[in-house]
Design a binder for these strands. Sequence first.
DNA 1: AGATGATGTTACCGATCGGTACCTATAGCG
DNA 2: CGCTATAGGTACCGATCGGTAACATCATCT
Lengths: 215, 215
Amino acid sequence: MTAKLASAKSLIDAANPLDPATLADLPPRERILIASRELFYQQGIHPVGVEAIAEAALTNKMTLYRHFKSKDELIVAHCTQLAAEGDAVWDRINADNPNDPEKRLTAWVNHVEDVVTNRFERGCALANAAVELQPHHPARVVIETYKARKRDQLVKLFRAAHYKKPEMTADEVFLLFEGARISIQCGGKQMALRVVKMLRDLLANAPRKTPVEKR
Amino acid sequence: MTAKLASAKSLIDAANPLDPATLADLPPRERILIASRELFYQQGIHPVGVEAIAEAALTNKMTLYRHFKSKDELIVAHCTQLAAEGDAVWDRINADNPNDPEKRLTAWVNHVEDVVTNRFERGCALANAAVELQPHHPARVVIETYKARKRDQLVKLFRAAHYKKPEMTADEVFLLFEGARISIQCGGKQMALRVVKMLRDLLANAPRKTPVEKR
DNA sequence: AGATGATGTTACCGATCGGTACCTATAGCG
DNA sequence: CGCTATAGGTACCGATCGGTAACATCATCT
């Protein structure tokens, strides 16, 4: 058990989502999506068969195909679910820090710290899916619009915080985060951890229109 | 044809590597590795069968298995080849700019510009492979040592150029590049292009031990 | 010419894949 | 009770996968 327990309030539940007790009372479609998220993330999309997903979801292949016309459609639903969860994290950051771009930014960095330290040993599930899926796969547009939305949200936040170059700063922050998550899988766990300090330095030192009072 | 022709001297040949005339006089093992590089990059590793590789290499499955004991061993050789090619690019940058860390840095950024603009629509082939392969796959260590070597080479270069924080600056540059390449596949082509300006700004503005004269 | 080793060709194996047909069991509801 | 819709179970299909056996072909070297 390397992860510190209760290190910081996390924005994502960490209980084993494949625990039978956790799944028991959920409808089949939700169980299938939970199982997909777990298996796809751990093993990738192509190596995981629909039968394995059905078993992990405590059901069978026929029920799976009653809810999803094909594996490709399941993949789209899976990516849509991941995007919705990412949006929910962002919404919660905003709701917890109403009308305060400054605190929202630091809350987002804290979330990044949580992500690269305690969770997601295989990086960003949506980026991984984009790597595995051909450019014409219908799930790709879900991923691309999600990533574009994340970047735009960061731009607006930096603009609200009166940074001089909100687009530029958002792009830097965005790319550093993406780079850190892909590097986790390329052995750069230590480097991925250093991204948190980089982000905090960047937020503190990037030029602003009006200087911010020290806290 | 969007790519500018002869935009800048590229460090990588761009001729179609699967052209029969290109392959004709090469020994089977090299043809197989060339075909693997192309097919694995365009379609990913898992979706590409050994038969398809053999056909693209103008040979057959038996000859492939005479040179590689298994598909996994071929994958390892494929990743080793990619790492060697990446090292060759770096060596050439160094050889073209002897004993001049400053010019080496700008040459490296020019290479990055070439990569994100004219080539590699599917990002870094080694990072993609890491995404597809399970953590225990023997090719993963090849990828991880390569990525660590790249980062260390950047650190040494920034140290030679008398940057105040060579590790920190190298990490930033490395993560920005990695983030840009993974973002290419997530629809962020435009953002990936902006990474060049970020890198040039970063090189120009990161603190140094001794200021550099204007050119 | 003869021998040798690498390569090309075809056919095949067992396993697994995505997807479907068919039937049973169960739960809600009148 | 009986009706209906959903879910579980089993068996199966055609296609493809990684990998192998056996044989034909070819170039090379002595």
